[in-house]
């Protein structure tokens, strides 16, 4: 296509704006990374910057030296993320497939049930009381998994993708005598890869970054998730040292790299997701089709 001069200038301006926006998105994160690699004393004298202040791995060494509490938090988060994502993704895909099947007599009702739950819900207190008094999941790992197994928005993302599967494919399977369940697992799931990758990543992200359910339902230190642990030490660096002490190493709190150690934990908490997501990116555009909410 031939571009006019005017259009060329406009497109350059747009690119420039996009570069600024991209820097706005990415640069703040580098401050954290730089701080985690800084020397505590230099940092507390000169402040945060884009490059490490007096490069030092002291904070990393400090955090990883007695890593019991952190490893434990990692273990909780990894377990919850893996189990939660697998279960949630499977159940979400199954349910979304059913409501995408217009020939199923209950598809409209089920679809409405998902939609309605996005608009109206019991709120914090009723949910909290149900979970703790009736389902008895307080202080169990289930409390961290159950809330995100079916997320209405993800059902719709999945449905948006599944709704475009050609009918002939399903009918061919039927003629071959495959049951609905077999058709779903053998024919539908394999061609749903972009949506599974995209929605799966968002589910994993939800579990990985969750601190809210921990804050509500978890009192046992043993079940602290990574983000919750980070939140606990946010205002109280003593929590960091006391949980380190549990690893039988006494620490002189005055010489502790408190500021930089917090930043190390930020890097450890956010890092894995940021490393993983670019690999899934190629599926995003195909996987992020929002389907019709209406029936």
């Amino acid at each position: 296509m031939i571009q006019s001069r005017k259009e060329k200038i406009a497109s350059n301006i747009i690119t420039l704006i996009f570069i600024i926006l991209a820097l706005f998105c990415v640069v703040p994160i580098f401050y954290i990374l730089a701080a985690s690699l800084s020397d505590e004393i230099t940092l507390s004298r000169e402040g945060y910057s884009l490059l490490p202040r007096g490069f030092s791995l002291e904070a990393f060494r400090f955090v990883l030296e007695s890593p019991k509490a952190i490893l434990n938090a990692y273990a909780v988060t990894i377990f919850v993320t893996i189990v939660g994502t697998v279960v949630s993704l499977l159940f979400t895909a199954m349910f979304a497939y059913v409501i995408a099947r217009k020939d199923f007599s209950l598809s409209r009702i089920f679809s409405f049930m998902v939609f309605f739950s996005m608009l109206f819900n019991g709120g914090l207190v009723p949910t909290y009381i149900m979970m703790t008094q009736y389902y008895n999941v307080k202080d169990t790992v289930l409390a961290l998994i159950i809330p995100y197994i079916i997320m209405p928005w993800h059902v719709f993302l999945m449905k948006g993708f599944l709704a475009d599967i050609p009918v002939s494919l399903i009918e061919a399977a039927k003629i071959d005598g495959a049951s609905e369940i077999k058709t779903f697992f053998k024919i539908v799931l394999p061609i749903t890869k972009p949506a599974l990758a995209t929605v799966g990543l968002f589910i994993a992200f939800t579990y990985w970054n969750d601190w809210y359910q921990s804050m509500l339902y978890i009192d046992k230190a043993l079940l602290n998730s990574l983000q919750f642990y980070l939140y606990r030490i946010m205002n109280n660096i003593q929590y960091l040292s006391s949980s380190m002490m549990a690893g039988n190493i006494s620490i002189d709190t005055s010489s502790m790299p408190s500021e930089t150690a917090r930043m190390v934990l930020c890097v450890l908490a956010a890092g894995p997701m940021l490393v993983i997501f670019p690999f899934f990116q190629k599926y995003f555009v195909k996987g992020l089709t929002v389907g019709a909410v209406k029936g």
């Binding site: 970054n209 983000q227 980070l230 946010m234 917090r262 930020c266 908490a269 997701m273």
Partner: peptide, 10 residues
């Protein structure tokens, strides 16, 4: 992909 906890540190 950054949680609000980490964002608050930023």
């Amino acid at each position: 992909f950054i949680s609000w906890v980490v964002a608050s540190y930023i």
